[in-house]
Simulated scan of single mutants.
Amino acid sequence: METPNHYFYVLSCKDGSFYGGYTNNLEQRIDKHNEGKGAKYTRARNPVFLLYYEIFSTKQLAMSAEYRFKQLSRKAKEKFLEERGVNYATTEKLS
């Protein structure tokens, strides 16, 4: 039996903020966020754009990555993304 992938992902919200989350179906989850059916945080910040994701073998590992990201300051989140080659500046404040 195939094991589903577990994703930690980072979104850029319309207001320029970042949102970190977990899912086992990345495309479907981003669609839910943009339909206003995702996390409460993103409902008022649509549209959201995928900036970054990592695939993990277990849910626990992916959720740990999400937790660590959410504990970071804004400046540390920016550094996290920059270190991974993500240009988040082009998607900020697209209202």
Rank of each mutant, 00 (worst) to 15 (best):
S12C: 15
S12R: 14
C13D: 07
K14N: 15
K14E: 14
D15G: 09
D15A: 04
D15Y: 05
S17N: 10
F18V: 12
G20C: 11
G20E: 04
Y22F: 15
Y22H: 07
T23I: 08
N25L: 13
N25E: 15
L26R: 10
E27H: 13
E27K: 15
R29A: 01
R29G: 01
R29F: 00
I30E: 08
D31R: 14
K32N: 11
K32Y: 13
K32M: 09
K32E: 15
K32R: 10
H33A: 03
N34G: 03
N34Q: 03
K37R: 07
K37Y: 02
K37E: 06
G38Q: 11
G38D: 09
A39T: 00
K40I: 10
Y41C: 01
T42G: 01
T42V: 03
R43Y: 06
R43E: 10
R43K: 14
R43P: 01
A44Y: 07
N46L: 02
P47I: 01
P47Y: 01
P47S: 02
P47N: 02
P47A: 05
V48A: 00
F49R: 09
F49E: 07
L50A: 03
L50W: 03
L51H: 02
L51N: 00
Y52S: 02
Y52W: 15
Y53F: 15
E54M: 07
E54H: 08
E54N: 09
I55F: 03
F56G: 10
S57N: 13
T58H: 03
K59H: 11
Q60V: 14
L61V: 02
A62I: 09
